[in-house]
Nucleic acid binder design. Sequence first.
DNA 1: GAGCGCATGTAAAGGGTTACATGATTCT
DNA 2: AGAATCATGTAACCCTTTACATGCGCTC
Lengths: 182, 182
Amino acid sequence: MSLRYGLLGLLAEGPASGYDLARRFQEALSPVWPAQHPKIYAELSRLSDAGMIEVDSHGPRGRKAYRITDTGLSEVRRWLTEGEVDHTLRTESVLRSFFFWLMEPDDLQEHLRREQRFFTETADLARGYAAAKDRGDFGTSPQTRSMRVAVEAAIGFYQALADWAEWAQTVPPAIPEGDPES
Amino acid sequence: MSLRYGLLGLLAEGPASGYDLARRFQEALSPVWPAQHPKIYAELSRLSDAGMIEVDSHGPRGRKAYRITDTGLSEVRRWLTEGEVDHTLRTESVLRSFFFWLMEPDDLQEHLRREQRFFTETADLARGYAAAKDRGDFGTSPQTRSMRVAVEAAIGFYQALADWAEWAQTVPPAIPEGDPES
DNA sequence: GAGCGCATGTAAAGGGTTACATGATTCT
DNA sequence: AGAATCATGTAACCCTTTACATGCGCTC
């Protein structure tokens, strides 16, 4: 359901084609909401049927740019202010940690190092984005200001996971059954 | 796919029925991997067909407890050490933030206060769990030690999101088009 | 015996990914 | 001419949720 509003939100910035939207999802939104082009094209059709968007222009190679309608704009706004926030979260990384006790200590350490590296790199990537924005690389439009807020969230939780993975490496391995405690 | 391994992982601790597993997913794993009972029963059938688990005992009210087989145990272990980690993440909270510029400043502040409250409460809940574990309420088995590691991750990222929501309230609202930049 | 919690499942619908398919335009 | 990129879409499949359906066993 959120994809629907993600598309409306992006179209609120200006007309765009399915291809454009797929690219923007990939570039900007993928860390928090991945979306592939088949789903995007399908959703655009449904939004169009619902009168929330309409074709703005036809371009080369069958390009079809959509524009948000007043109905669509009210609908995103309604969602943003009145819609219940779905706080569901899924992280395989943390799910796995429930089962760390099944791993060989060496394999676990190796795994945690990899995880730490991944999360640190992702956090750094987000920091780079934030720095570019703060330098003014993307202008000062309201949209890029919001993007900056979103990026701050990404920095925060990827760093939190990086710190966690680092800390987890310091947790002593479980004492095998029967061994004395220390 | 992860649900499959989540079930195997839980069954590695000892025999359990679909009902038990649904409850444990709800109690312990739901913050990072929600799962409803229809999916769980379906997956158990498939795991049973694949020879990774087998019926351990029949109880009252048609209760069927499953036990993990050697094949199943190797399979979780293989997943944990060799399986590629899927780092996909979806947070509606952060997706919404890309579109904050569409909201009235007052509505946004209210929204962020609610979000901060939610994330703080969730982080505190996790802290309570961690404290109980550290007090020794759940014993010192390898399983509960791993659970403690998982809980630390939850504390980390929920706190990160709480901090973010608090910080976002201090970001000045976008200057409406045409207004001078103060 | 009424009500609650235990216990299992099916059916339908929704959401999302991957693979397949096609063709136009631009760049080198 | 060939390669890369733009551009749209369908089909099949997988994963997940919600609603429906049923019945047993325990407690008050």
